[in-house]
Design a protein around this nucleic acid. Sequence first.
RNA 1: GCCCCCGUAGCUCAGCUGGAUAGAGCAGCGGAUUUCUAAUCCGCCGGUCGCAGGUUCGAGUCCUGCCGGGGGUACCA
Length: 588
Amino acid sequence: MNLLRTIQNQFRAALVGLVPDVEPYVAMIKPTQDAKHGDYQANCAMSLAKALGKKPRDIAQDIVKRLDLSDLLEPPEIAGPGFINLRLKSTWLAKQVQAIANDDRLGVALQPAKRYVIDYSSPNVAKPLHVGHLRSTIIGDALTRLLRFLGHTVITDNHLGDWGTQFGILLYGYKNLLDNEAYKKDPVRELARVYIEVRKLIGSDDEDNAANSVADACRAETAKLHHGDPENNRLWREFMPHCLAEIHEVYEKLGILTFDHEHGESFYNPLLPGVVESLLQTKTAEPGEGGAIIVRFSDDNVALVRKRDGAFTYTTSDLATIQYRLNEFAPNAVLYVVDFRQSQHFANLFAAARRWGIAAVELTHISFGSVLNRDGRPISTRKGDGSELIDLINKAVEIGLQKYQESYAERKAQGHDVPDLTEAVQRDIAETVGIGAIKYADLCQNRTSDYKFDYDKMLATEGNTATYMQYAYARNRSILRKENIDPMTLRNNPPSVAIDTPPERALAIQLLRLEESLLAAVAEYQPSAVTAYLWDLAKTYSGFFQNCPVLRAESGALKQSRLLLCDLTARVLQKCLNLLGIKTVDRM
RNA sequence: GCCCCCGUAGCUCAGCUGGAUAGAGCAGCGGAUUUCUAAUCCGCCGGUCGCAGGUUCGAGUCCUGCCGGGGGUACCA
């Protein structure tokens, strides 16, 4: 069910014959910002006025006359310079709501399937996950869930940084600082400890440029690894599973989907000489200064694909990755969820790929802004400022628990009927609320904006937060629980829906807008379209909850109708949250 | 130097290929509780949309210039 598309179809039919290409004008139909202008508005008459050399209001008149209202629309109103205000018929809305009551997909149609490869999270192995990996992971996970729900095939690939200088650090630490007993007992923890110790010895945040003997020794270990030193390569293979285990543990805690593939840089390493050769052959690349190989885009914009010393760069590796993915997965699109600072790299990468002959595949950099601390500065990756991801998660959960307990005490003191929950259940709620809060705070932002990581704000119970959605959901579930109502009975035999009051009508429309919002989210790769929808839905539901008694409705039929609206609301809330990777709780 | 992004209410941000009087949340102020969970709801207050031009019937949105902030810019990824 797609309200917008349904209305647009009616308009398309009405516009055919007026102008050669109707699509731009069909696209000028959108939801109204103000309910007093109806549900949707068509703004095409003003634009058509110029093309047709007539008065906009006359054209609006004309369109309305040609429009088949069917049982869909009330007679439209023409307002202002030529706006056509559209109001859906309540009887039609009621029927649509009833029709999706028993639909697992909640009225959302499967879209023509495409194949996507999506590259996200992509941490540097051997370093603890820190806050900088948060957005890519959360956004990528949400987009994967959204695309899959809409019927697409999504191949997820975690492009690990598993061949970089951090392994030099690990190798040096292993050889010089290892506690053997500890390593045997808990290799993940010991390697993490050793890594941090060496980082302290290096002293600089920028391990590549640090100048001291330990830094030099680490670089030497990296070089040995890259040049095929058997010992270092053996150790690399020994470390990798441990490093991955550490990362997977955090993913699991966060509730991130399992990746289909985790092909890191090391996987592509053997392919790089061939890639450069091919780049040269196809004249994609050319020799640069001092024996380097470059792809030149303009006088002052070049991408290096082979350094003077013969080593390859991430551009080379990324080109090899594109080629591999095309051969292996034959996707329609490859998406990269990587922060905005790599915009130029991706612009160059895609340009190089096109020149290399890669066509007919969408290549998109899904860029996002930085996570800032309270002072508005990017959160440093330096150890000790609490930026390790696992610490942030634990703290959010802790605050979630605290908030629950405060709220419980407060409600109890006011004499409210609050369920007494076991400690284990309380912890579950805190996990769901805390982790949901982190994810929601991230996703509800326009992804291109920076945002401040602020526990108070993300765990607030008011406003556009996960907690507010969780609460709306829990309150809703409580209604059915109160009278032991089985939702399946309601769904299998849906009652007719009454939408006689404004809150019921508003809720019905909102419920039917699910597909519209999911498609908008996917079209722009913008999960915040879903949170915006959730926020609207939750507020609309609040109005309904406040003004339309369900269990004490005036009649049995009305009660059934409202129960159905309730149940559907809960399912849509839950579905949207789940599509964002957020779990729900039935009580809180 | 060159390129990219951003600048909207005291704060944090929306603003959907230009559309009606620029919207939310927080904070502030004032209300609602014999409750289907008040982790809630309702009302009020609050903006020369960085500045100046231009295009248009119509500009927060598009174009140009300037100011301010951030990022990138051949051997890190």
